[in-house]
């Protein structure tokens, strides 16, 4: 049997928790970093135009109802605008939370679970939002009953 020896304190051994086992090079982190900066700049413009057209221009905040939203989305410009805003904001926010998880979760398993929840929520919200932008109907007919609001055309 080997005689147990005391390891030299200057053996150059790196504590296992610190060694980067596999190098993870690639341009993903660079792309994410660049995306945060570019999308941030674009979002500042998009969000303030969105806030101004919805809450300041015209009748201001009192004009906002289903009819107003449907009126905006009748124009392809606002459809594309809101779609871009949705996607950019969601991806920007998701990437931000992803970096926070990376920075604060200490175990890889915790990271995996938190990011799983995050990505699921992101996909659901993006798909749902995209669907609503293109299929929004302010005067739906449910079970043969038209839920007529004041702005809906009477049949």
């Amino acid at each position: 049997m080997a005689v147990p020896t005391v390891e030299s304190p200057r053996s150059g051994r790196v504590s296992p928790g610190y060694s980067r086992t596999r190098s993870s090079r690639g341009n993903f982190e660079m792309g994410a970093w660049l995306f945060m900066r570019l999308s941030g700049v674009v979002l500042v413009v998009m969000i303030f135009v969105h806030l101004w057209t919805s809450l300041v221009a015209g009748d201001g905040i009192s004009q906002v109802d289903f009819g107003f939203v449907a009126g905006k989305w009748a124009s392809p410009i606002w459809q594309v605008w809101d779609l871009a805003m949705l996607w950019l904001a969601m991806l920007h926010g998701t990437n931000g939370v992803r970096t926070i998880i990376n920075d604060y979760a200490e175990k890889n398993s915790t990271r995996m679970w938190l990011k799983g929840v995050l990505y699921t929520a992101t996909v659901v919200i993006i798909l749902l939002g995209t669907l609503v932008i293109f299929t929004f109907d302010p005067c739906p007919v449910i079970d043969g009953v038209a839920h007529v609001a004041s702005y809906c055309p009477t049949a």
Binding site: F28, A32, D103
Partner: peptide, 9 residues
Amino acid sequence: LNDKEGVWR
């Protein structure tokens, strides 16, 4: 340094 644990952190 263009690594997941490189400058982008």
